[in-house]
Simulated scan of single mutants.
Amino acid sequence: MSGGQPPRMSEARVTFLGALLTTLGPISMAIYTPAMPQLVHAFGTTEAAIKMSLSMFFGGFALAQLVAGPLSDALGRKVATLIFIAIYLVGSAMAALAPTVEVILAARLIQGIGASVGVVVGRAIVRDLYVGAEASRILNTIGIFLAVGPAMGPTLGGLTLAAFGWHAVFLLMVGFGLLAAASTVFLMRETIIPDVRRLEPARLIRAYGEVARNRQFLAAAIVLSGSIGALYTQSTMLPFVLINRVGLTPTQFGIGMLMQSGFYLMGSLTLKMVAARIGGQRAAEIGIALCGTGGVIMALSVALVPPFFLSIMGPVAICTFGLAFLTPHVVTQSLAPFAHVAGSASALTGFLQMSSGFLGGIAAAAIGDPLTAFGTIIPFMELSAVAGFLWLQHLSRRA
């Protein structure tokens, strides 16, 4: 525990709040994906326009983290969280009532801005109260919840879509936002002493400059941007690959996506059982090896065989199992030097991850064919994570 002081929230409460807030963004994306092909027809628009709605979410999520992090350092974690959840609820209600695709695009941007606080504060409250192996343990447990929530998302979204139509998919997000708001009000205790001076432009620039100049942070950020960014990027392609090319229905797609989140859950549970025995560094080495292997198999399967469910989702499963082993140790390393500006450091990490996903989505749109994009962009991102990890190891050895 940092500073030798007992935490003002128990490990269980920090884990629950961290998990709930961190899943706000991913579940908003996961619930939505089965509806994407139907929205093309509902608004008489193009696949590119609906893909752009996901990119708008990514863009808002990525950029707003740069504000959410310092705001949580300045106003406190609780106040900042409630401000951004209110924004998320406005965006969710707008999307549910959207009469045109333009309103959907604006609503998804607003949703992304509101959801951005989740990953920032979810990680920052862990860093505020815990360090080292304890922090990694909490982050791994958050990873288990992070797998379960988005795993249920496509299935729930697909079933809701089939039963009630696409409007109800966004109403589910309103419900999730209300749950997050209520949990923040009644369960979260402040973990820092707020200081509005942290919002002064000069101090803000210094804080981000300090984080961005740290080579340990940069190496860890490359690892997380490649591996987690790939997960975000492939969500813009998989609905169109699996529904339009493989031939799944939206409901089958929602159930099929359990393979992605199910393997992430399996990885998190396996890590929980073996972490004490193998340690964080060894777990991360296993994880990055699986991410790299999955990326290579993915490129080869797209290049060499006609697409079918396992040729697409098998490599995805390998990567996500590895990601569960990789992230707790690397996230802990990325935030370790920044106890005094944990919100800003967490924000910059999240910004880079989401920016990676956003740029990957733009690259996929530029390529055009979702299958070609999937077999090119995702392997490249996974291998860039491998390169970042080798740099991180090199820095650790020198230190």
Rank of each mutant, 00 (worst) to 15 (best):
L146Y: 12
A147F: 08
G149A: 15
P150C: 07
P150E: 07
P150L: 03
M152K: 02
M152V: 15
G153V: 00
G158I: 08
L159D: 01
T160V: 10
T160W: 01
A163P: 05
F164W: 14
G165Q: 03
W166M: 10
W166R: 09
V169P: 14
L171D: 04
L171E: 10
L171Q: 08
M173R: 02
G175H: 08
G175W: 04
F176S: 01
F176D: 02
G177K: 05
L178Q: 09
A181L: 14
A181I: 08
A182M: 14
A182P: 08
T184E: 08
V185L: 15
V185R: 00
T191M: 11
T191Q: 12
I192D: 04
I192L: 14
R197P: 00
R198W: 00
R198D: 02
L199Q: 11
L199D: 12
R203P: 04
A207M: 05
A207S: 15
Y208T: 11
V211M: 06
A212M: 14
A212S: 14
A212P: 09
N214F: 04
R215S: 12
A219I: 08
A221I: 01
A221P: 05
A221E: 03
V223L: 03
V223R: 03
L224W: 00
G226E: 06
L231A: 15
Y232I: 15
Y232R: 08
S235E: 12
